[in-house]
Design a protein around this nucleic acid. Structure first.
Lengths: 387, 387
DNA sequence: TTTGTTAGTTAGGCTGCCTAACACAAAAAG
DNA sequence: CTTTTTGTGTTAGGCAGCCTAACTAACAAA
């Protein structure tokens, strides 16, 4: 795994070179003096670092930038030697794939709509992933450099190799798909991925802690506390669909009932059951419900408000446990601004102050998140785990 | 605050010296070769580090240890120049105080039983804290070195200076007590302190993540995820007494009701209401209830089991949110091994696998935790914040 | 007393950063 | 056109903080 013939034999970079590389990966192309000042490195140190990074083509010069005065500054970006990553969102309705450089320049992307909505991970999805990855690899060009890492976002709980892998369905992705050998592989839950994406590129940018709550077919949460994604011992952190319900004196709570009560299915069933004949045909799905609610339909608005209150109550529960200060709503229902005020009102009334925001990334959140995690894995490979 | 006449003027230690100092603070007295090998420092580097640390008396030699063969090794410990810390647990029934060196050698300790159980922070407690601290400072001896930090564990929510201080009652401690000027001051919630103590010295030693759940007069949780204490934006992480309740279809949840339902008061009220005449007088308090349950009283056992189930349900909620993998039970009721099996059964049935353990530290947990936090603050002062 | 083993010091080297001073490029001033 | 000004990049040399190698010191067993 380590002595691949295309790999440079462990460059063992100096600290400043690593810092410069990280800066280019995270901040995108930049000039030498700019990087130097932002990392407070002296010009000689910058020279040495750049020279070190240019040898294995980890970085490359892409031109010169003229300021108002004085000599123009050389601009650099991550080079082909740094390689690329493949990120796959193996979702229940789509398979989304992105191939990108470590500084997130998109090399290819693919979206496959699955023939039937697969409620959970199964072999059908695995085959789709295999096909998409094969297609992406066939399109690979030498200028992309070596494949450094591959990330897979799964709609299942994900546990590390030390955990109880058997109890999750995470292994099913590999029933028809074999990941490229000798490449770092990252598995992560799709909601956690979306949280990571919102953290770095979306509605939670700059927040130290927050919760991403996905409200759609199922309900789930991704938790970031102190800039760290919280996974949990069983990969179950944020599995708020698994909350037991009801929780009241005398009632006997059932595990996992929250999902059944708060998921789209049950919600729409309640809407249909409670839809007055006078109001016309009940909406067929949540999209339609949201559409007519958005145009002022009172009956629809009432149901949306009621659901917002339920979601708000669940969020209040999470706030009382971890007090994240910020919640980003995503998913089919959560992305709608119609839900937001009701959720915010209920959550704040029932618990401690929380700001509630809508997602900024929508359906792309998951791929972008797993891409980020794959890039982090690639960096660990290139720079050698520490920090 | 920085140029106190008793303070050494910023020694600016080298990295290895800091590592050695930290090792002595955390691991207690040790020999030079032992520290060197455990930090993988060469003998010359060790020499330099020790010399550096002996100058300001941060460490001192306390003897020589003879191995089976060869020259004896010099043994060192944290010296008087490192100073000491004061840790105070301003609890609702007791004020507990510890004065200790940075390597946790106890210099004095005091325990004051408050005349009446103060349900919350008030001026009475503040006066008691002032008196105890004054007594401790009067007993101070020159060999203790300078006071480096002081920690205060409070039975309130605690927020940092950036937070909304007014909404907590944390400022009330200072109504009759003025902390020593120019000394780092650490405030922390008492349950969080207990969690920190269990993390380092108690039932959660070695666990990366866990929740400490205090079950007593009130119910609260301290959360440690990835070895980091989770405080929350409003200092409200772990405020599970504030969970809204009931949570069921049609019911309207009330904020903070969980505390009323799960606290000792309400619990004992239910016990009394449901106590059959044939079973004799109902127990007066939880201690008595636990005592007769422990000796096999079926009626008492039934109530304990019922309460264990309720606690287990709350823990299951927490597990579905953060999945800590381990829960340590503490507090008046939680410390009892009678509760444990019922809690473990319910929590595991309703959520994901969690190990449940009893506290190992009991009533001392909180002081030990705030002591630890004060020591960490003192280290930050001595070594200059980083890492 | 000798020998073997471990503890600690001294001498000297290497790495990774720094500052100072100089060479280079490009616009502005003469 | 030079010349000046200003910012970019390189070369030379220094210093902190670690290392290895080799020596001295202390102690037990032969």
């Amino acid at each position: 795994m380590d002595q691949n013939e295309t790999d440079a034999p462990k460059p063992a970079l100096t600290g400043s070179a690593r810092a410069v590389f990280r800066q280019l990966v995270e901040g995108g192309p930049s000039t030498r003096p700019h990087i130097g000042s932002s990392l407070s490195l002296s010009r000689p140190t910058m020279s040495a670092a750049i020279a070190e990074l240019e040898r294995p083509q980890y970085v490359e010069m892409i031109g010169a930038v003229r300021g108002a005065l004085g000599r123009s500054a050389a601009q650099y970006r991550v080079g082909s030697g740094a390689g690329h990553v493949i990120a796959v969102d193996a979702g229940s309705t789509h398979v989304r794939l992105r191939v990108s450089t470590l500084d997130r320049r998109l090399l290819t992307s693919r979206v496959l709509r699955l023939p039937v909505s697969q409620i959970s991970m199964n072999e059908e999805v695995s085959r789709a992933v295999a096909a998409e990855v094969a297609a992406a690899q066939a399109a690979m060009r030498p200028s992309w450099g070596p494949l450094r890492a591959m990330g897979l976002a799964l709609p299942t709980r994900v546990v590390g190799p030390t955990g109880d892998v058997a109890s999750t369905r995470q292994e099913i992705v590999f029933s028809a798909f074999t990941p490229p050998p000798g490449v770092a592989l990252v598995l992560e839950n799709n909601v956690n991925c979306a949280a990571v994406a919102e953290q770095h590129y979306g509605a939670a940018r700059g927040a130290q802690s927050f919760a991403y709550v996905q409200v759609g077919l199922k309900i789930g949460m991704g938790l970031v506390l102190g800039e760290q994604l919280v996974r949990g011992r069983n990969g179950a952190a944020g599995e708020i669909g698994h909350l037991s319900f009801p929780f009241a004196p005398g009632a006997s709570p059932q595990p996992g009932e929250a999902e059944h009560y708060l998921g789209t299915e049950a919600f729409m069933a309640r809407v249909r059951a409670d839809w007055p004949e006078a109001a016309g045909d009940a909406p067929a799905d949540t999209a339609e419900l949201l559409a007519i609610a958005g145009s002022g339909h009172v009956e629809a608005l009432r149901h949306v408000a009621r659901h917002a209150l339920d979601i708000g109550a669940v969020i209040a529960t999470c706030v009382s446990v971890v007090d994240p200060g910020l919640v980003v709503l995503g998913g089919g229902l959560g992305a709608s601004p119609l839900l937001l005020p009701g959720v915010a009102e209920a959550a704040n009334r029932l618990s401690y102050p929380v700001e509630i925001r809508n997602t900024l990334l929508g359906a792309d959140a998951t791929v972008l998140g797993i891409e980020r995690l794959a890039i982090e894995a690639a960096m660990a490979v290139l720079l050698g785990d520490e920090a």
